[in-house]
């Protein structure tokens, strides 16, 4: 069976900086994959190479079994680009109509407008739209051709909470139909909630690639902070899920891959625990740890 997207040892430098440093990636049809990484990790370059917008210095890219440019030309791909521009002096529905008309089997325009949440400002000119509204228009243009493969580069940038939810609902709908969706984000929660598979990218390299449960356990550390008199580092380190312990007087911080289990065991073992707070470790911190502080 052909792959939806395949990158083989792709390298791309901009000036002295390696945006992509030997990326291998294979995505099967029907997968929903999040490319997760901090800013500057190479997410946009990766998607640009895959779409044929940027030629790699070395390595090869293919989409749906063909060259990226040729496959895009067949109308089986829809994409939302971070730096995709819109023309300002046309109405939203005119723009959607024009782009839908480029595809062999487009979605009816009114359905695109509904799906991307554009109905309320469909007859307005693009130049009067807010950043979030423009982003919804870009999403609409990506959906207009009813593509088998949807590529979204940080699709929720500039969107309010309600629009984000609506967008992910559409993405999951398409995934449920068996379409392939590949999106980039720097939010772990977005990746975990909407993808089946997460590809972790840092400094132009894939540093981890796997199903959501595996990657969230690697990245999604929580911190448990509390106060405890006479805390014993060794003993605390043996609590389930814990892989780091910091003790500063009576203040203790546990880094854990499974905060629920850690807390249950903590309360069972220690009566003197007080002032418990938990927090998710942020993605930047997790990446620093995973890449050995080389960010």
């Amino acid at each position: 069976m052909e792959t939806a997207m395949r990158l083989t040892d792709v390298r791309k430098r901009y000036g002295g900086v390696a945006a992509l440093d030997g990326v291998d990636l294979e995505i099967r049809p029907g997968e929903t994959v999040a490319v997760l990484g901090p800013n500057g990790a190479g997410k946009t370059t990766l998607l640009s190479v895959a779409l044929g917008l940027v030629d790699p210095d070395a390595g090869t890219a293919s989409l749906l079994g063909g060259s990226p440019a040729a496959t895009v030309g067949t109308g089986r791909v829809g994409a939302l680009l971070q730096d995709g521009g819109l023309i300002d002096d046309v109405r939203v529905d005119e723009l959607v109509t024009a782009v839908a008309g480029m595809y062999p089997a487009p979605v009816p325009v009114h359905e695109v407008l509904t799906a991307a949440g554009l109905t309320e400002f469909a007859t307005r000119r693009v130049h009067g739209l807010s950043g979030g509204q423009r982003q919804r228009v870009r999403f609409g243009l990506a959906l207009a051709g009813d593509p088998r493969l949807l590529v979204l580069d940080e699709p929720t940038v500039g969107l309010d909470v309600e629009s984000r939810r609506a967008l992910w609902r559409r993405v999951r709908e398409r995934a449920a139909l068996g379409h392939t969706v590949i999106f980039s984000t720097h939010y772990l929660a977005e990746a975990a909630d909407n993808a089946h598979r997460i590809v972790l990218l840092a400094r132009g390299k894939v540093i981890a690639d796997g199903d959501v449960a595996r990657i969230t356990s690697m990245v999604g550390d929580g911190e448990v902070r509390f106060r405890l008199d006479g805390a014993d580092r060794q003993a605390l380190n043996r609590l389930p899920g814990v892989h780091a312990v910091q003790v500063d007087g009576t203040a203790v911080t546990l880094t854990t891959g499974d905060p629920d289990a850690t807390l249950r065991a903590l309360f069972a073992a220690y009566d003197g625990v007080r002032g418990v707070r938990t927090a998710g470790a942020d993605l930047e911190t997790a990446f620093v740890r995973l890449t050995g502080g080389e960010l």
Binding site: L51, L53, G73, T74, G75, D83, G84, G85, M102, Y103
Partner: peptide
């Protein structure tokens, strides 16, 4: 203006041929 504004990049991910 449209080239600088990124419209051609947007068109590049549609099936529109390069000269279109």
């Amino acid at each position: 203006l449209e080239r600088t504004g990124g419209w051609l990049r947007q068109l590049a991910v549609t099936p529109l041929p390069g000269h279109g």
